[in-house]
Design a protein around this nucleic acid. Structure first.
Length: 596
RNA sequence: GCCUCGGUAGCUCAGUUGGAUAGAGCAACUGCCUUCUAAGCAGUAGGUCAUGGGUUCGAAUCCCGUCCGGGGUACCA
């Protein structure tokens, strides 16, 4: 049992005995004692004054006495105003330490046969352009949430819905036909997704010029946007694609193939993966069928222009289109089909969509629509809604080229890591390959930590010039500390020092005790991260732990002490910190280098 | 207009179900590499928690108003 629960239970019991009142366990606030006070955990007694009908000090005194007498690990207590500070027996913390040292799965819950199955959808790229910084946040969050769920004992299926059809890819296809001159990734040496993205931009350039030309001739802007030859051609391609025109489908397959090859590289570099991939081209028809079924069953209605709508005014929302007047499907249609297919394929207990907060409304509607269509899981969907990534220059816009490209960013950061490492004279003993691998690890560690340490729900600012930082509260700082711990452990091994996790020392220093207390928190941190879908909780915990260790490391020599018991004890602490940090960072997808 | 999310140091962010004197990092300034890795450590400085009220033993945190910003708002995804 966790110490917090233990004390909560004992306090409930104390209040029952002393004041003859039943209180709920969650009414007992147990928190870590603030640094400047004596004690390890603190109970706030203000809420109990109404039962004790005594002053805060007296109430705390009474509770403290009871707890000290009845809970074996409570050694002492003191009272300051309404705060009851409890001093926990050192043996308790030492017990945690040897647990961390010997249990490789410390803090995690094993997956069993009857574990809940959670499906996490993330990434969800369009196939007309390469991945950018916004996708990076999505991918890192999705991957991390899946890992955190696993650590909390859930079965997880990571999934990706690829938006491989629609007007966007037709724009790239048309531009390639018109101005591509048969360009392809092999001959041009360009990454496939970048190549296709180039034509998407090309399309937009021509499209804009055509609009301007028409407006010049006196056509209204709205009409111009519909009459521009490029857009008409792109729409024609979409129509031909839906009609399964052989040539069009062939081009579509080829260009998507280029994009997938490119995506594979990006995903691999980013360190994310998927268990099951769905394609919109497979799911949109299922969605259409479902909408038509809903129409027959009277939950949707058709307007005179033959478009299909859902009336959500009873839910406090407005009308939502489900099929266009020309019968083609919209975004929502596809999501209905995808959901149906997924629930057919897996027995999903929890469906999580990792999608930006700009789509909050969409998912609110999706849940209601699925519910209306009779899927009992509809209202249980969880939209993990994360904030946008903003640049100093403002919002990223693909078409305007104001995006930070994912591949470029990773390359640039690796470059910085390499230069910095050389400047610092590090890793000179490693082979070129090993060093290169470490540079990448550091660069990705910096990027992942930077993005995951902030509250996912909030918008975040990314300044490409300043954000590539390797000092302070960063991934590399954590990696660096880990590498130093490994270095100490290697040296201990060279010296043939045996490590015994059971050994005790006469007295714990303040810093040592702080470290043990923090280590004991890891399981509840993992749980909290799982409950709140927040990798940031883990990132911040790891930083605090590592910072604490670094201070310890500077004040306490580990291998330089004469007392073997003390050396042993400090080695156990170092090793335990290393293990927890590695485990925690793995939940963020951050790898730990053995040296750096 | 309506809906929704936000506003904490110059900048980027933390801040436990309301708890003790609001914390980190960056940037600035001071020290510390002959000693287990200085991608580090120690220190100085930097705050009317947007703002006005309310709730109570206690508010950055909860409620209401105002200001500022992001996002959404019927045939883009």
């Amino acid at each position: 049992m966790r110490i917090e629960e233990m004390i909560q239970n004992a306090t409930v019991e104390a209040i029952q005995t002393l004041y003859n009142t039943e209180v709920g366990i969650d009414q007992v606030q147990v928190q870590n004692t603030r640094k400047d006070f004596v004690g390890d955990v603190t109970i706030v007694v203000f809420p109990f004054l109404r039962y004790s009908k005594k002053s805060p000090e007296l109430t705390a005194e009474e509770l403290g006495t009871y707890l000290q007498d009845n809970v074996s690990i409570i050694e002492d207590f003191n009272v300051i105003k309404g705060f009851l500070n409890l001093v926990i027996d050192e043996d308790y913390w030492l017990g945690i330490l040897s647990e961390v040292y010997s249990d490789d799965t410390f803090g995690t819950t094993p997956v069993t046969d009857d574990s809940e199955l959670m499906m996490v959808e993330y990434s969800s790229p369009n196939t007309n352009k390469p991945l950018h910084l916004g996708h990076i946040r999505n991918n890192l969050l999705g991957f991390s949430i899946a890992e955190i769920a696993k650590a909390n004992g859930k079965k997880v299926v990571k999934t990706n819905i690829v938006n491989d059809r629609g007007i966007h890819i037709c724009k790239s296809m048309y531009a390639w036909q018109q101005w591509g001159n048969g360009k392809n990734p092999e001959e041009s040496g360009m990454k496939g997704d970048h190549l296709v993205g180039e034509f998407y931009v090309e399309f937009d350039k021509h499209y804009k010029a055509e609009i301007a030309e028409l407006v010049e001739k006196g056509v209204s802007k709205e009409e111009a946007e519909n009459q521009a030859p490029s857009i008409i051609a792109a729409r024609e391609l979409l129509r031909k694609w839906e009609a399964k025109d052989a040539e069009t489908v062939e081009l579509w397959k080829t260009m998507n193939g280029w994009v997938y090859e490119g995506f594979d590289v990006t995903y691999k570099n980013l360190g994310v993966d998927f268990d099951k991939i769905y394609y919109e081209s497979d799911t949109y028809l299922v969605g259409k069928e479902e909408v038509l079924r809903g129409l027959e069953e009277g939950v949707f209605y058709r307007k005179e222009d033959s478009s299909v709508w859902a009336d959500l005014s009873n839910e406090g929302l407005d009308q939502k289109i489900l099929l266009r007047s020309d019968g083609t499907s919209v975004y929502m249609t596809q999501d209905i089909g995808t959901a149906k297919m997924r629930f057919n394929d897996y027995s999903i207990d929890k469906m999580v969509y990792v999608v930006g907060n700009e789509q909050n409304y969409h998912f609110q509607v999706l849940a209601i629509l699925l519910d209306k269509l009779g899927f009992e899981w509809g209202k249980d969907l969880y939209h993990f809604s994360y904030g946008m990534v903003e640049l100093p220059s403002g919002k990223m816009k693909s078409r305007e080229g104001t995006v930070v490209d994912a591949d470029d960013l990773m390359d640039a950061m690796t470059e910085v890591a390499r230069n910095m490492s050389k400047e610092l004279g590090k890793l000179e003993s490693l082979s070129g390959d090993e060093a290169e691998q470490t540079f990448r690890m550091i660069a990705l560690g910096a990027l992942k930590y930077f993005i995951l340490k902030v509250d996912p729900r909030k918008n975040m600012m990314f300044n490409p010039e300043e954000s590539i930082d390797f000092n302070g509260n960063t991934g590399p700082f954590i990696q660096y500390t880990y590498a130093r711990i490994q270095s100490v452990l290697r040296k201990a091994e060279e010296k043939q020092v045996e490590i015994n996790p059971q050994i005790k020392v006469a007295e714990l220093s303040e810093k040592e005790k702080e470290l043990l207390k923090r280590l004991s928190l890891y399981p509840s941190v993992v749980k909290e991260a799982g409950d709140n879908y927040s990798p940031a909780v883990i990132a911040n915990y790891c930083y605090e732990l590592v910072k604490e260790f670094n201070q310890f490391y500077h004040d306490h020599s580990i291998l330089g002490v004469d007392d073997l018991d003390v050396m042993n004890f400090r080695l156990v602490i170092a090793s335990a910190v290393g293990k927890v940090v590695k485990s925690g960072m793995a939940l963020l997808g951050v790898e730990m280098p053995e040296r750096m």
